[in-house]
């Protein structure tokens, strides 16, 4: 049986678009991850959504659905002026707060949501909140550890003058030692070259990221986003190496 180009072209279209239509009907055509954070697997809150799994690709609306924190509250906390705050993607915070010395990003939203709902979250890493967010949390039921953490991890709202004393990391149990230089903190703009300069070996970096060393000029945060790694986790591990 001979086949010519026109029937072949038709077959290609039928197979691809018919296949996509069929798989859509069967519920197999999925082009994005479910915007549903993972749940706690142990402890008092088992089965509840875990704020630590909030992703940068989530919008405030997704967070509202998963955790019940209103989008308007989130927008107020992070000073987002928008008519539809529910559509604001969390990763947009990094750009808005890019000029800040202390990073405000996905980790900040995780922290805020956890504190807002009284849920446990790892406080060994240094995550910061703007004054507005901290003020909104004053009325929530924070325990002593959370209150102390909040006190030392609050930064001025953008445009406000910086406090005389910069936030410290003392309250957290495994936080950076007192001699940690502020200049040696990993931020959103920190490159692999910088942490190499701060004494972290390439082998250690490769161990942390689980892959060969990328170009030293690559920003760690960009790399994590590209590779789907959790920046907060990578940052905390590398920061611990710097602080040794």
């Amino acid at each position: 049986m001979n086949l010519t180009s026109k029937p072949l072209a038709a077959i290609i279209f039928v197979v691809f678009f018919g296949g996509i239509a069929f798989s859509t009907g069967m519920g197999w055509w999925v082009t994005e991850s479910a915007k549903q954070p993972a749940a706690y697997t142990e402890g008092e809150f088992v089965g509840q959504s875990n704020p630590a799994d909030i992703r940068g690709s989530y919008t405030f609306g997704v967070v509202e659905n998963a955790f019940g924190v209103p989008s308007k509250v989130l927008a107020q906390a992070f000073l987002i002026e928008s008519n539809s705050p529910s559509t604001f993607a969390i990763k947009g915070l990094e750009e808005i707060y890019a000029a800040n010395e202390f990073e405000i990003g996905t980790g900040s939203v995780r922290l805020f949501v956890a504190f807002y709902n009284g849920l446990p979250i790892d406080l060994t890493a240094d995550t910061y909140l703007p004054e507005n967010a901290a003020a909104l949390l004053q009325d929530r039921n924070l325990n002593a550890e959370q209150s102390a953490y909040l006190k030392t991890h609050t930064i001025p709202n953008p445009g406000n003058p910086a406090p005389e004393v910069a936030p410290t990391t003392e309250p957290s149990q495994s936080a950076a030692p007192a001699e940690t230089s502020v200049e040696n903190l990993i931020k959103g703009k920190t490159t692999f070259q910088e942490i190499l300069d701060w004494g972290v070996s390439p082998a250690m970096i490769e161990q942390v990221i689980g892959a060969p060393m990328p170009s030293p000029l690559t920003k760690i945060k960009d790399y994590c986003i590209e590779k789907g790694l959790d920046f907060e986790t990578v940052k905390a591990t590398l920061q611990a190496e710097i602080d040794k």
Binding site: I12, G19, V30
Partner: peptide, 19 residues
């Protein structure tokens, strides 16, 4: 990577095995 990549992979294989 999502399920859609898997679907497209199968469709491309079907076409390749035939043509």
């Amino acid at each position: 990577i999502h399920e859609s990549s898997f679907v497209l992979m199968i469709l491309a294989f079907i076409l390749s095995i035939l043509f």
